[in-house]
Amino acid sequence: MNNQGTFMMPPAESTLAHEVDALYYFIYYVSLFFFVLIVACSLYFVLRFRRKGKQVERTPDISHNTFLEILWTVVPTVILAIIFVWGFRGYLKLTIVPKDALQIKVTGQRWFWSFDYPEGVNSLNDMVVPVGKPIALLMSSQDVIHSFFVPAFRIKQDVLPNRYTQAWFEAKNVGEYDLLCAEFCGTQHSSMLGKVRVVSTQDYNRWLEEAVGSLGAGMPLKDLGEKLYTSKQCFTCHSLDGTKIQGPSFKGRFGSEAVFTDGSKRTVDENYLRESILNPQAKVVAGYLPVMPTYQSLLKEREVDALVEFIKSLKP
């Protein structure tokens, strides 16, 4: 059942999406009916009773019509009551998380999403979930309010810094769906995008093992560092070719002289790199804003070493 979505709505990919669409289109057609009624009536009256000629004549004394007024008060109220009840029932289904859901911890922070799986796997901006299984999202923010919004699943929930909020969905089809931030959160609010990759259960399990596996030995540090450079979103702020984005470029960084905002100087060595990863606000290079979030809980010991190795390997 290919699901292209309609003119007004994106593809309905979650089990509840079609219910939201059903209510949307019910309101849409009721509104269309009343809108056409109002515009047609007004147009007809305006053309039928337009002023002909210059002379001014009296108009009839129609001051009110009790029946008509009761009608157009009661009918809208009844329709609105129906919409309210339908909307509230849908809302409860959207927000009450089913018992057997797979729980993923979502953390929103300034300008990327990080997902922690029960098995200890962490991925940034890229949530891999099995198809046909309810997924519960336990969400919190590290700094300002963000909002977890997946149009295809029709779910949206603000992510608050001081409280957990929850959302859930069950994807119907395998595929890749956009994840956006819907609450204004600063400079890169519009590029705080992510992907929800819905895969078959086997692929999901294979991905999980491979992800858990990569935590352990096997890959040489430099290659692991290069993989982390992309998967941990370093590329959004630090380039490899010398261009300045939100942060200094990694190209030829190692061994060069760094001048900080407070004017002090220091050569870039392993300790400085390690400290800048785990505690970025400690020493901020002059000309840059202290907006880098801490990776304290996001990187394992081995991953920090891998990143340092990778940065060291980027000769000028």
Partner: peptide, 10 residues
């Protein structure tokens, strides 16, 4: 969640 949000800890 916890008295202090992470951003202020460091």
């Amino acid at each position: 969640i916890k008295p202090k949000a992470k951003i202020y800890q460091n």
